[in-house]
């Protein structure tokens, strides 16, 4: 092989590598778009509170759970799966580090019996309680739970545990439907403390989805019954 030929070949090979890199980047961009990552809801910091463990930022989050996908982030048409149960307004959450977070969840959905009654217990909240329509409680019987809000896991050792899990009691079937198409919700409030920053995920542990075990469909799809929780600064 002569020198100019060889040079041309090397150039051609290099060009192919560049084209390949562009294809990888292009396809990953396309897949991100297809994945439709939900927007992030940031908890509003509202001042500082003194606690036994030192000063903590106060922050609050308000979420809702619906028997369908018509009222949350998927738009009034409900997106690809209007019939799927969903959390709203979104499922990617952000809360400040070293904060006392107050969460309010309005549940508009009826109950589905838990697979594991363990998740009917309130865990990891301040005082070990949640307030259901203003009444403090430590647990809900498995048959009355509609969904749960369960934060867990740590991809990295050393990241503080945040084993928060609260059951959301279902709306009784007899509740009349209001003007918005939903019955009056069960309002659940609870507080938890965050430590240093870290990445968590949260999910529902009630088999409210589709297919085997009730964990298919919305239960296995971010943007419906599950999402991420980032504890951060700023």
């Amino acid at each position: 092989m002569t020198a100019p030929q060889s040079g041309r070949h090397l150039l051609g090979a290099l060009g192919t590598v560049v084209v390949g890199a562009v294809v990888v980047v292009g396809v990953s961009g396309l897949l991100r778009v297809l994945a439709a990552v939900p927007p992030t809801l940031r908890a509003r910091p509202v001042g500082v509170v003194q606690t036994a463990v030192g000063p903590l930022t106060r922050a609050s989050l308000t979420l809702s759970t619906y028997p369908d996908s018509l009222a949350g982030e998927h738009g009034s048409g409900g997106g690809a799966h209007p019939g799927w149960v969903s959390y709203g307004p979104t499922t990617n959450l952000w809360v400040p580090a070293h904060a006392l977070v107050t969460v309010t969840i309005r549940n508009y959905d009826g109950a589905t019996t838990l697979t594991d009654p363990f998740y009917g217990r309130v865990q990891g909240t301040v005082g070990g309680v949640e307030w259901v329509n203003g009444r403090a409680t430590r647990g809900v019987p498995a048959a009355q739970v509609a969904h749960t809000f369960t934060i867990h896991m740590f991809p990295t050792p050393g990241q503080p545990l945040l084993d928060v899990s609260v059951p959301l009691p279902g709306v009784p079937a007899s509740t009349p439907v209001g003007a918005d198409g939903y019955p009056a919700p069960t309002v659940v409030t609870f507080q938890f403390r965050t430590g240093a920053s870290g990445r968590y995920i949260w999910q529902c542990e009630d088999p409210c989805g589709t297919r085997v075990g009730g964990f298919g469909g919305p239960m296995s799809t971010q943007g419906y019954m599950t999402g991420t929780l980032v504890v951060g600064h700023g």
Partner: peptide, 23 residues
């Protein structure tokens, strides 16, 4: 092979930065 590149892109750093887990 393209899929392999995407897998290694996700695993380049901790944090699942490239794709959500379902993807």
């Amino acid at each position: 092979g393209l899929a392999a590149m995407l897998i290694r892109l996700e695993l380049l750093r901790p944090g699942a930065a490239a794709f959500p887990p379902a993807t």
